[in-house]
Design a protein around this nucleic acid. Structure first.
Lengths: 144, 144
DNA sequence: TGATATCGTTGCAAAACGCAACATTGCAGG
DNA sequence: CCTGCAATGTTGCGTTTTGCAACGATATCA
């Protein structure tokens, strides 16, 4: 097996292992916010004015799944839906003030965990790792 | 926000997005083998003689969850359980011949997808990315 | 206006998961 | 030897997450 193949193999294996643990990890880091809820809130923080369809497309989920998640987060008062004035089919999603608070708290606990994990990483390595992940996700979106 | 904080933020976000899509991605790459099943089979391929408890610990899952997954894979004839002769409590898990075949087929389809994704990556970057992922998962295990 | 597409919701069933209780087996201290 | 304790795995039960299909409402285009 070539070095390239070995690297590809390792990347597959490690990414899969990470994905497999992600739910439990999130549950330990912030029990009040599931991996799903955290993801949606964090996405809305970046992409204010997001639609439910956008979330479904980005995370490869069925629109019904997203619909339910969004409904639950709205019942909890964490997000708001505003029907688009120009297109009455779409509902524009926004973070509610309470959603901002909850997200900030969860993010803080996450950050503590991550800082421990990466404590002895060289800043240059950290930067490269971040670049690689961004690039990988872009490639994954381009080659579905 | 410092460069280090920005990198940490990016790593969190991108890893989370990846985890969120992993299930759907696996379903498209190999519909006959769920992410869960694929993970267990791949793990057994590496760690022959694995116990159910090992799987639960590694993937942060309840032992009952693993027990059911293992039972299902055995019903499908993909894995075998051999009770340890020295300790009759433990069941040593092995890949069955049929499990090897199914895993090989799924791995092949995975590999095709990954090679497309990484087609224009420099080999040195691939190697570094693989290293970083291994290191990250080790750190995650050390700082739970 | 009528056909078609898009956005979101709901009914339904299946999969995945965790917790608690349990049986079985091994191990160590008295 | 035996009694208590730990480890392994299974099962019952309820919850959560998910996808598919059908549907209503709205928009777009011929």
């Amino acid at each position: 097996m070539s070095g390239r193949d070995a690297a590809l193999d390792t990347i597959q294996r490690e990414l899969t292992a990470f994905a497999r643990r992600a739910r439990a990890t999130a549950a330990r880091m912030h029990p009040e916010l599931s991996l799903v809820s955290y993801t949606i809130l964090a996405h809305l923080e970046e992409q204010q004015g997001c639609r439910a369809t956008d979330l479904a497309a980005y995370y490869l989920l069925d629109k019904s799944t997203v619909s339910r998640q969004v409904a639950a987060l709205e019942r909890l008062g964490l997000i708001e839906r505003r029907t688009d004035s120009t297109d009455h089919r779409v509902q524009v999603l926004h973070l509610a003030p309470r959603g901002n608070e909850v997200l900030a708290a969860a993010r803080e606990r996450r950050k503590q965990t991550f800082e421990e994990r990466f404590a002895d990483w060289d800043p240059a390595d950290l930067g490269r790792f971040a670049e690689y992940l961004v690039r990988y996700n872009e490639d994954a979106a381009a080659h579905p």
